[in-house]
Computed example of a mutant assay.
Amino acid sequence: MTAPNFSSASVLDALNWRYATKMFDASKKIPTDTWSALEQSLVLAPSSFGLEPWKFFVVDDTAVRAKLLEASWKQAQVVEASHLVVLAIKTGLSEADVDRAMARTAEVRDASLESLQGFGNVIKNFMKNVPDVDGWSTRQTYIALGQLMVSAALLGIDTCPIEGFMPAQYDEILGLSEMGYHSVVVCAAGYRSEADKYAHLPKVRFPVEDKVQHI
């Protein structure tokens, strides 16, 4: 597989164009093929040991999204955006999850489970020494969020990450607890409204030399 051919300028243009969209144009929907690529960007997100301790719930049902609005401090992005993704962790990650990951690796790479046993044991030992596995999984999930947002920007799709919601209520409305998952962060995606004043404001960041230091 050859390396992609994005220019430095095109990547920076996309990232400067991106902002946390406050108002979406509810009449505009993300094309199916574009959304499929964004779903794949989530699946392709890196995770420690390749465990993928998450699942991404795309909420299509407008009635359900209306319920989520109440559990999101009435942030309109939840119902106005073309798509809404709830990024959730698999709670209580266990050795069985490690075994499943090793089995998948063996399948995809045409390797024997025996050849992966040592690696699997390393992961299991690591997990035994992590004081808060769910906290670790939560931090992993933000990697996927970042990848989704950058991928969207490169495709000209607006996003808004949302932490201002009530996870317990989301879990109840979506039935996540029964499935063994817990909501961590939400991302709305679609197209910005021309009425969103934040779309026209300069991006505020400290200078590179203030935030990046070479040692």
Rank of each mutant, 00 (worst) to 15 (best):
L116S: 03
G118S: 09
F119A: 02
F119I: 03
G120M: 09
N121W: 02
N121S: 12
V122R: 10
V122E: 14
V122H: 11
V122T: 12
I123C: 13
I123K: 04
I123Q: 08
M127K: 00
N129K: 15
V130E: 10
P131C: 02
P131V: 02
D132T: 08
V133D: 06
D134E: 09
D134R: 11
G135A: 14
G135T: 07
W136P: 08
W136A: 11
W136Y: 13
R139E: 15
Q140V: 10
T141M: 10
I143F: 09
I143H: 08
A144G: 06
L145I: 04
L145G: 00
G146C: 10
Q147A: 07
M149S: 10
M149F: 06
M149V: 14
M149K: 11
V150T: 15
A152H: 03
A152S: 01
A152G: 01
A153T: 04
G156W: 02
I157P: 06
I157M: 08
I157F: 06
D158I: 03
T159N: 10
T159D: 08
C160N: 12
P161K: 12
P161R: 11
P161S: 09
I162N: 05
E163D: 14
E163N: 14
G164H: 03
F165R: 08
M166C: 05
M166R: 12
M166E: 15
M166D: 15
M166G: 01
A168Q: 14
A168V: 09
Y170I: 14
Y170Q: 13
D171A: 13
E172V: 10
E172T: 14
I173L: 13
I173Q: 10
L174W: 13
L174A: 13
G175E: 11
G175C: 11
L176M: 10
L176V: 12
E178M: 04
G180M: 04
G180C: 03
G180K: 03
Y181H: 15
S183A: 15
V184W: 07
V186E: 01
V186S: 07
A189M: 02
A189C: 05
G190A: 07
G190W: 01
G190F: 04
Y191H: 05
R192M: 01
E194S: 13
E194C: 03
E194N: 13
E194Q: 13
A195V: 05
D196W: 06
D196A: 05
D196R: 04
Y198L: 01
A199N: 10
A199D: 08
H200Y: 07
H200V: 05
H200L: 06
H200M: 01
L201V: 02
P202S: 00
P202M: 03
P202I: 02
P202T: 02
